[in-house]
Design a protein around this nucleic acid. Structure first.
Lengths: 208, 208, 208, 208
DNA sequence: TATGAATGAGACTTCATTCAT
DNA sequence: GATGAATGAAGTCTCATTCAT
């Protein structure tokens, strides 16, 4: 709960490199074998450092996952920035949707751990809470965004729509993880975007 | 991989009862605490049997989860039977959707483990494969069903639509797990059904 | 604090034997090498059991020491019983002193761990507290005993005298531990008894 | 055993200061948390030096404790000097007792580590040996002193009396450590001094 | 056949000590 | 010399699994 994810804030570049090395290695292993199955010794060994070095940077195994989650949260925040541009309300829905979805797709392709974390795979209750908080925050922002686009939406509905939209992005990620086939991935993306467009269109731009 | 899930197929009712007892108990614990965190001793103790007895029914811990997955698969099959009735093609989309979704909702409410298994939470690679096979089979059946309803769909598209539809059901389950609030659950169900209807309607009943 | 010393109360004789075996082995090692230096693996190995077996009986290493302390407390209680006999007030001081000291000497000779625990050697704060509670209780009883013998003593003084007397016993134990030489031990016992007699005599049987 | 306590005998004041700093810091931590529990890194950090620096002054952790024991030995020697003044034999026992005990009380109040070391709390066997040697030396000196005061004492008896007297001082220290209450401490000191006086009086100044 | 005590590999973590910078 | 990141042996403890009774 109150544990810090990182033991000491390293200012020197060497330390920072080691820290990143640990995180990246852990990320790979968590995706490959899952959090519980991945041992701290395996992380250290694959990272080419000693187990002691790992524990200089992280107080325990959970902290490694938390640090990854933090990194994910930061990245997600950046992505949302691009949504809240002035002209958003004048853009056609298709473009908006691309703006919403594509950055996340890039993120999850680049860092598959984040997908893992997002999907809440095998995390301890502690981590799940962190993950949940992040989700809640992103949903709140998305709801706010929807209300900017469609002021007639009441708060409850906007929240619901945000929840569902977020879940659809999650769904898309999980489908893309399932198969590496490029054609299939393109098809799935098209299909899901079409579904989301069909859902959001009427909700955000109603006639009456 | 090639290990059998169940050691001996018990015909006698007592053995069957014990077996079910173990599975039900394991199901509860897996949902409460996760697969990795749940110990075989905990399952045995909560089930009121000895650890030795548990190992008479299952060769190892994985086998317990596999047996649960099998049970889930059987249940799912039963649910699908109700879809393939003669009159399906004459029913309005809303009713079809309810027929597709509602049984699954009941199933997951009755047996939360299945939701857990379906969502692929913290299962070993071994189990994930099983789970994946089940998914593939259900998707194939669903695609077949869609082609029955809309013969103009080519196989690829039908498969895609089935994949997305299945994923939406999964999404719905995950959202329902997130909150126990009845009003919220009702809202979410309505919202997701509306989305799926908006998606499947045009796909299955095109103008031309 | 709230941890139990023993995991399950074993009623069967085999379990009881294993438990005693662990405690006796631990006792030896604690005396030989000290608590911190003695490893749980060493205890298990010397006891001829597996490390897992040890942890079936005790939740952690501290619990082993606590259990020893409990055993000591029980033994000490028994010793005190013999003090509170009817005729105590009519006995000459020398006899009383022997009755007070000799049983403790036997106890510490038979079970050197108890001396170790009594002397508070290298125990964790947790254990120290237990040890302290025991001491407090014994001192209270001793003070009560002194007041029975010498009703004119006020409570504070009686407590002080008890504290000092108890400390002298401790002192004696520590001196006996220091050397195994029989003659030396006899000399030391005589000397310390003489000192204590010289102290308690006037306190308990004052002229005025 | 044969390791030197201090790596280089520093004549320069800076080195000496650092050395003292390390020892004082270690002393505090040993008293607070015990020898085993205190880490070398903790000592270095609290002292405001690097762990590498600490290991320039001491070859290993034991050496730090040994150096403290040495410092204690030196201090104790100084205290004994004041005992061996010419006029000692003409002083009344009460004054002699104060001269014997009070300096030790001051020493232990000023440097609680010494009490810790004296009481043999959680020291490794290695240190215990050193501590024992010191004790032996002090006892020898005390015995010699007693024989100066009371020439009729044979060597064995004088040694015994010294052993017991030394142990009583130790006892007193341990009682004072047990409670910080000023009134209680004063009471305990009075009581113990009375006991020791009652013991030494007849021994040192016999009628015949 | 049922029991549950026992096993032991292996997980997490600590910390005295070294050595590249 | 000083620094502190890195090392890795070793300790505590867990838990899937076995097997004597």
């Amino acid at each position: 709960m109150s544990k810090n994810s990182i033991r000491s804030i390293p200012r020197q570049s060497r330390s920072q490199k080691t820290l990143d090395l640990i995180l990246d290695t852990a990320a790979e292993l968590f995706v490959e074998a899952g959090y519980e199955t991945t041992t701290t010794n395996a992380i250290a060994e694959k990272a080419g450092i000693s187990i002691g070095a790992l524990y200089r940077y992280f107080p325990d195994k959970d902290a490694v996952l938390k640090a990854l989650a933090d990194r994910y949260q930061q990245q997600s925040h950046l992505l949302f920035e691009t949504l809240f541009v002035e002209d958003a309300r004048y853009l056609p829905p298709e473009v908006l949707l691309d703006r919403l979805i594509d950055p996340f797709l890039s993120l999850y392709r680049k860092y598959p751990v984040y997908a893992h974390i997002l999907l809440g795979a095998d995390v301890s209750a502690d981590i799940a809470a962190v993950s949940c908080d992040m989700e809640a925050e992103m949903i709140a922002k998305l709801a706010e965004f929807f209300r900017m686009l469609a002021p007639h939406l009441d708060k409850t509905r906007a929240h619901l729509v945000a929840v569902v939209s977020k879940a659809v992005v999650k769904l898309l990620i999980s489908l893309l993880i399932a198969s590496r086939d490029a054609q299939y991935q393109a098809d799935v993306i098209r299909e899901v975007k079409q579904m989301l467009l069909g859902y959001l269109g009427p909700v955000l731009r109603p006639e009456s």
